[in-house]
């Protein structure tokens, strides 16, 4: 009978690939933090890479050559200054969120990728502009 051998082989191959998949998964983990959490854990974070999600504070965008800076905030009003050479969504307002991947460098967050969050819900200004 070949059967027991096949089963053993399948179990071995299966668990091996699951183990590899698990390793790859935990290696691909990117911590997601909002500004208040990021500030709280700043010391532990050190220079490790994480995903920062929040809202761009309107009017906070400044340019300095290729370097762009803006402030990312959240509902607790925690603020983090972000520096990036990626192009920012200049005309996006506080209604639009951003996801930034990068690391703390001193007090600044250095973002290497910048993604915009697009929402399904939408609110027009309650006061006419």
């Amino acid at each position: 009978m070949k059967r027991p051998l096949t089963i053993i082989l399948l179990v071995v191959v299966g668990s091996l690939s699951l183990f590899l998949l698990g390793r790859l998964l935990s290696n691909s983990e990117v911590l997601y933090l909002e500004p208040n959490e990021a500030l709280e854990q700043k010391v532990e974070l050190g220079d490790s890479q994480f995903l920062l999600g929040g809202l761009i504070r309107p009017g906070s965008i400044t340019t300095d050559g290729d370097v762009l800076r803006f402030v990312v905030t959240d509902f607790t009003n925690a603020e983090i200054l972000v520096r990036t050479t990626e192009t920012p969504p200049e005309l996006f307002s506080d209604k639009t969120g951003v996801f930034l991947e990068g690391t703390f460098e001193g007090d600044e967050f250095h973002a290497t990728t910048l993604l915009l969050r697009h929402e399904e819900t939408y609110e027009a200004p309650t006061e006419a502009p």
Binding site: L21, L24, L25, N27, S28, E29, V30, L31, Y32, L33, L51, E101
Partner: peptide, 23 residues
């Protein structure tokens, strides 16, 4: 696994994570 792994991490620890494209 990649899609729902962050949910389990969220349930069993207080971390919120995301799985990068690279995976």
């Amino acid at each position: 696994l990649g899609t729902i792994y962050p949910i389990f991490v969220g349930v069993f620890s207080d971390r919120t994570i995301s799985i990068g494209r690279a995976f």
